[in-house]
Nucleic acid binder design. Structure first.
Lengths: 348, 348
DNA sequence: CTGTTAGCGCGTTCAA
DNA sequence: TTGAACGCGCTAACAG
């Protein structure tokens, strides 16, 4: 009622900002700022009468909450950093897509980070994004620097590790059993009667999940008593062109091969397209199987046999797990095996 | 020197958080908190002696700055929201990739948002992310709700609109001239001697940039005096399967067509793969051209003629423009035409 | 259900 | 070059 309060701003305000604040809304609605805050964040804790007054003031003034201030006061922002190795690999993108969609629908924002497969970059990235007081974190893989693991374990907020499955996880885990996925394709090739089977990959020095699939592959072949360590790789990024090259290399080195197990569909697609060009018949001359389940596979000639992984769904599940914890719901289970599915098509 | 200050915390601290703060570092280093702040943010304003003491305290305590608090105090966070229509469309992903890489290298974080091509969602998304006091914003396209445009124009921080080029932009603009790109392919088809040319797209109700390309295409054909409004579309997301379907539909409706102009490479790839299956010869039976420049195009048989757009580079340039302004450098130019390149291959 | 008070952890401003 | 004080805008905690 009185305005002769000694003007709380002893000095000029820091910033020329003239954004409307919660105080402005409170004044306009004739309530205390905290009531505005509650009307916005926990509407059922405010009488419908006041809530209406507040809502109106909010729209009439065009109030937009300062999430930074809210975050500082409540020690948490509705931000979820998502840390992946690379944005040039479709797999991660699709997972991020699932995460993003699920979180955005729940009112959270994704803060995107990429590490280029470098654990030290991962560490510093995580250190820095934790500075935003995020509600949780999603990161890729189960291998991290000790300091990262330590920091996240003592952090006290939900953490989900995605893509791969395995024992020691920081908090929660959604992924695929890579060795078994690799074994699955190897077994399929054996079942189809192939015996001279090679594994073809690229960038396997950094991509240890591909190495895990190769391991599964190798063990199955070894157990079957066939040559198990035929591996062709190159240290370039995965691409159609890379697939073509590794394919040609393998053919040149071992013309007797009867089946190829590619580390992913992109490589396999490059190989199939090249084989088409050269008139190599599949699976008669050589069979091809791979991993991922990209839609391109079903449009190639021959259609591609692959171990398909629900990547988008993996993102969705990871996000759901996080949300469960954030909303205080019973954390059903801290580990989800998202599974895979062998799709046998013409190429084998 | 004395510790009998009446303990600034009249009550318990809000949060059980035991994170180390700038005060802890200051105490450890025997300086004032502000000196720590300066040593970290503006190192040259602190004597090397104190700076060393601070740096050591920082590492020994494992101090990680609270970016939220810093953001509140300085009215700005090193966050850049990037708003795209969809994360399931490769084009946007590649642009985001370029943006992300460039910004992360400069110490900024990307906050990812997607609108599903809905301008109202865009508006509310932008309203909400502005609550994080970001340093700038990158958004897609030049069409937005008036309120969005208004808010961003008066916002006072750099804004970059990407993907398309045109006159009224909010602040800065990096993109492609879609009508000219469409015209370019149409002209190419004419030059090659084709005369019964159709445009095939999907989801063009929402994707007005594809409509713009069709417009450019139409005008060129009309000017050449050939049938110009042959358009086949369906309202489904872009995919290989969709390309196949629209292709078959067009063939069925107009068996006399001699060339197809696809709205993007994915559709064209789906069509080429289907044509391969059916023994349709390209370009003899029918020619195909499209837009994007995906690497898949050069591995198909026939290799695909396309208007290639440097998507990653577009992201890089958008980010650079933003950074220029953020770093107070002369804003070279507020609008960049990223260009396109006709890659004539076997399919035409 | 509503209001009061007191910070959240920093950087800006002003003074030395 | 260093420091003291203040407040960014909001919400947690504690009354009423």
């Amino acid at each position: 009622m009185a305005k002769e309060k000694p003007s709380p701003r002893g000095r000029r305000r820091h910033h020329g900002d003239n954004r409307v604040t919660i105080d402005d809304v409170a004044k306009e609605a004739g309530v205390a700022p905290i009531t505005v805050s509650r009307a916005l964040n926990t509407p059922d804790k405010v009488s419908s009468k006041l809530r209406a007054r507040v809502d109106q003031a909010v729209t009439s003034l065009g109030y937009v909450p300062n999430l930074i201030a809210g975050g500082l006061a409540s020690a948490g922002t509705r931000v979820i950093p998502v840390v992946v190795p690379s944005l040039s690999i479709l797999t991660f993108i699709e997972v991020v897509h699932g995460i993003q969609q699920t979180l955005e629908d729940a009112g959270y924002q994704v803060l995107l980070g990429s590490t280029d497969f470098d654990l030290d970059r991962e560490t510093s990235l995580i250190d820095s994004v934790l500075g935003y007081s995020p509600s949780g974190v999603i990161l890729t893989g189960l291998k991290h620097n000790d300091s990262t693991v330590q920091r996240l374990k003592t952090w006290g907020r939900p953490v989900v590790e995605i893509m791969e499955l395995g024992l020691p996880c920081i908090d929660m885990n959604v992924g695929v059993d890579n060795p078994r996925a690799g074994a699955c394709m190897a077994q399929h090739l054996l079942d189809r009667g192939y015996r001279r089977i090679a594994f073809l990959g690229v960038g396997m020095a950094r991509d240890y999940r591909a190495r895990q699939r190769f391991e599964g592959h190798r063990e199955v072949l070894a157990a079957a008593g066939v040559e198990s360590d035929l591996l062709f790789t190159s240290e370039e990024p995965s691409s159609y062109a890379a697939g073509r090259r590794v394919f040609l290399e393998a053919l040149a080195a071992r013309p007797d091969l009867d089946a190829l197990h590619f580390a992913n569909d992109n490589l396999a697609a490059g190989a199939i397209l090249e084989a088409n060009r050269q008139g190599i018949r599949m699976p008669d001359d050589i069979a091809m199987g791979s991993y991922l389940g990209l839609s391109l596979g079903e449009h190639l000639s021959p259609t591609l046999t692959t171990v398909s992984v629900p990547r988008f769904e993996m993102g969705v599940e990871a996000a759901k797990l996080l949300l469960e914890r954030l909303e205080g719901r019973p954390p059903s289970q801290p580990r989800i095996d998202i599974g895979y599915r062998l799709i046998a098509r013409e190429s084998t």
